[in-house]
Design a protein around this nucleic acid. Sequence first.
DNA 1: GCCAACGTTGGC
DNA 2: GCCAACGTTGGC
Length: 208
Amino acid sequence: MSQENETAELKRKRTSVYEIRSVFDKRVKTTNSPDESSNKQVETFQYWLMKAEPNSRIVKGKDVKFSIDDLADMPDGVSQWDGVRNYEARNIMRDKMKVKDKVLFYHSNCKTPGLAGLAEIVKEAYPDYTAFDESHPYYDPKSNKDNPRWFMVDIKFVRKFKRLITLKELQAHKDKLMDMVLLNRGRLSVQPVKKEHYDFILELEIKQ
DNA sequence: GCCAACGTTGGC
DNA sequence: GCCAACGTTGGC
């Protein structure tokens, strides 16, 4: 790697860490065994929330609808997550998401917005080629194969929630979820989720 | 590098 | 369909 590239690389990493450091769980944890000599560093996964629109909406002639059921219907339940054109969301996908990380699948821009199910990361970041295609709704002339601007990951369907956990309900639990990104940064479509929030939401699912 | 104008997101 | 919030663009 050239000196110049290395500097750019370091700068990029620093920026992305700064952006979301405050809501991160540690990826590597040390096991706490009685015999300290057998403590091990174990890799843990992280939690994310990704938004999709479950209703049909035509953008430049293409339907951008994608619901949890649509994900389940994909071959092996796997889909690329293309079309993200926001830098912060991109940085998370490109720099932070790892295979096995858990994803809360959120339905937005619909009658009852809320969390619809679970997915997980099965492929780490690679260039979003839909940005190269002039006829595609998410075409970006500033992105190209030699210097891709946008990235995507692949996610795999895990399960649908037993019921939709509505935004309204999450808002009603702001004692617990006050600093959840969803409730504070309405427009970020790919966002980190704290483990404590993730766990709380899974409990909410089976309550009431 | 500021900031007004503009475009998009997404709840309602 | 409205529109507030907010992210991006581009003139200066």
